[in-house]
């Protein structure tokens, strides 16, 4: 119980929130780093996945990528990149590590989404005379949307978690509060930092679930035609493909 009251005291004292090492600054670093890396990974992974899915090739690549991504420790990649010549280039090692670990869930899910789009519907659209790009944008993409969003969600959770680990390799972000606490044997600070990280991760996850519902191009229609089973099934995909960090 000491740890909880200690952490509460740490969190409620204004001094811990202000300044270079304060919570606001660290939170800003964390969110900025995560957002930049997520955008870069989407720009790399989504076009590749949509193209591969559209032409129907590269399935083994997409599946194996996520398996390899799971086996490689994030911590090891962060440290290896920090010790490489890239390590002298400021935040680049962290950015590269985050992007590397965000690509597999994005690519795999988007690819599976494209491949699992109802082939009959796609064939019918082709028969109606839709061109390749039309088919991609108007038929396959809306049908693949749930899985693309699942990939985006697990990539985001992954990026936020990996950004925390960046502190172990000397980077910024909220993880720094935890590692600094471990370094000073300051348990209240460790717990307070952990609470902040957990709240951030859960908030981001919640916000994405909400955004997923709001921006679904087939909102309402999908639910009516397929029932609730489809929606319930989504979480399983996320877990089967995602990887905690």
């Amino acid at each position: 119980m000491d740890a909880i009251t200690g952490a509460w005291q740490w969190l409620t004292s204004a001094a811990n929130w202000a300044g270079e090492k304060g919570v606001w600054h660290r939170l800003g670093e964390h969110v900025q780093l995560s957002a930049v890396c997520l955008v870069i990974s989407c720009l790399i992974a989504l076009p590749v996945a949509l193209w591969l899915g559209h032409i129907g090739k590269g399935g083994t690549l997409a599946v194996n990528l996520s398996n390899v991504g799971r086996a490689v420790p994030t911590f090891a990649v962060l440290v290896l990149l920090t010790l490489s010549p890239l390590g002298k280039q400021g935040e680049w090692p962290t950015v590269i590590a985050l992007v590397l670990f965000a690509i597999p869930p994005l690519l795999t899910n988007a690819y599976l989404g494209m491949r699992e789009a109802d082939r009959d519907v796609v064939e019918a659209a082709r028969g109606m005379g839709m061109s390749g790009p039309q088919l991609l944008l108007r038929v396959e993409l809306p049908l693949a949307y749930p899985l693309i969003m699942t990939g985006l969600r697990s990539a985001t959770v992954q990026v936020v978690a990996t950004a925390t680990l960046a502190a172990l390799a000397g980077g910024g972000g909220l993880g720094r509060i935890i590692t600094a606490g471990f370094g000073n044997y300051d348990t209240p600070q460790v717990v307070a930092g952990a609470v902040l990280v957990a709240v951030l991760a859960l908030t981001v996850e919640g916000a994405l679930i909400l955004a997923d519902r709001l921006f679904d191009p087939m909102r309402g229609r999908r639910r009516r035609t397929r029932g609730r089973g489809r929606r319930g099934g989504r979480g399983d995909d996320a877990v089967a493909i995602g990887k905690p960090a």
């Binding site: 959770v157 936020v160 978690a161 925390t164 680990l165 502190a167 172990l168 993880g175 935890i178 590692t179 606490g181 471990f182 460790v190 717990v191 930092g193 952990a194 609470v195 990280v197 957990a198 991760a201 859960l202 996850e205 905690p244 960090a245």
Partner: peptide
């Protein structure tokens, strides 16, 4: 969803 570093810290 809780990052591992935070989990161990908690």
């Amino acid at each position: 969803t809780v990052p591992s570093l935070a989990m161990f810290a908690l």
